[in-house]
Design a protein around this nucleic acid. Structure first.
Lengths: 202, 202
DNA sequence: CCTTTTATTTACCGATCGTTCAATAAATAT
DNA sequence: ATATTTATTGAACGATCGGTAAATAAAAGG
């Protein structure tokens, strides 16, 4: 009589294990290039168990995105709601956004794939996520810290787009001969701060 | 006796038809979510004919990227090699890059997918493509037009990253309530120019 | 205790996947 | 004119796809 090993009966733990495996696979390979069999193997479960918990492959993909992005929203809110509106505080927010993406490449990949799919639910998250930062820009304009002839949302997008694209295409830039130096990341961040606040013009 | 309609025997025309169909499908859906059957249908050919001309699905994907990116390199070279090094010329190059991506959403999608795959061959194209622009930045620094305490490649990346990310995530921004106005694109470009050249600080 | 629910496993389904092979016919070479 | 090449077609391959149904067993409720 061979004792058959069975996964302990823990629905919530199983769900998170499946979500974790699916997240990394979807991020790295994309939705279409990832099979339920792969996810089952990586999460040490079974195809049918995945469908039992998430009803379909598409459903799983939606939950993966929702879990990650809603968590991201909370992360951002706490990042940008502290401190007063000074140039140094805005500078710190820029640095915080940079570090956030730097330390979470999977998030960057998921965001990019969601953008490619033109996922509208992700768009809602995006606006909620950035709203407090936009407000801070507007305040900084009122107090005369930042120029007022540019919409506050543009100010925000300009600096976040630079950073987001930097990490989306990080692998490409790594091979560039023009970009030497020890720490590519902090060196680039330094340049971004200079140009964003003071301008490229001499 | 029913006369069977046969595709005219033209290898080159067939190849381009297949490449065109594959390009738009890969760009919109991604490699893994696109089947040879779909490509065959869209190009009015047959699965076997695709494999005859491109040996495999992966081979086809490589050729699709190579064709598009090499063409992009030439487009860029002609864009940035004319005129002298003045602020107005650099401004024009920025506007030209903006228009280029604006008018070619398929290219933006392919670039993004290539980035996600960390396609190294695309990295080579990227450096060749941007090299003349970097050189122009360096010259502008020497003549005192642009600040010299930032690597020229950084100056380039800052402005191109803003624009690239704008069009990659264009669908998200379209739903934002903060971004009103008739022409979202030209309005954003205006802001980018202001901030890039003069800085966000007041 | 028994019943109900449900998380987990196993077996299986039809469809579609990318690929191969042989047949056909048009162009090219000899 | 004949032989060779090759672009095109159609049929078929095994593998894998996402999804279903039934069996098993652990937890929960009575």
């Amino acid at each position: 009589m061979t004792a058959i090993k069975r996964r302990p009966r823990d629905a919530e733990a199983t769900r998170t294990q499946i979500l974790d495996a699916a997240e990394s696979l979807f991020a790295a390979q994309g939705f279409g290039s990832t099979s339920l069999a792969q996810i089952a193997q990586k999460s040490h479960s079974h195809k049918s168990l995945i469908l039992h918990h998430f009803s379909s492959k598409d459903g799983l993909w939606q939950v993966v995105k929702e879990r990650r992005f809603s968590h991201f929203v909370e992360e951002r809110k706490s990042l940008f709601s502290r401190g007063g509106v000074t140039l140094e505080e805005i500078r710190n927010s820029v640095r915080a956004y940079f570090e956030l993406l730097k330390n979470d490449p999977v998030l960057v990949q998921l965001l990019t794939r969601a953008e490619l799919e033109q996922d509208l639910s992700c768009s809602q998250y995006d606006e909620k996520r950035l709203a407090p930062f936009v407000e801070r820009m507007r305040e900084a304009q009122k107090t005369g810290l930042l120029r007022s002839d540019v919409p506050p949302a543009h100010l925000l997008l300009i600096v976040t787009n630079v950073i987001t694209q930097w990490f989306e295409a990080r692998a490409m830039f790594a091979g560039w001969s023009e970009l030497e130096g020890e720490d590519l990341d902090s060196s680039f961040l330094e340049s971004v701060e200079k140009v964003f606040f003071e301008g490229a013009q001499k």
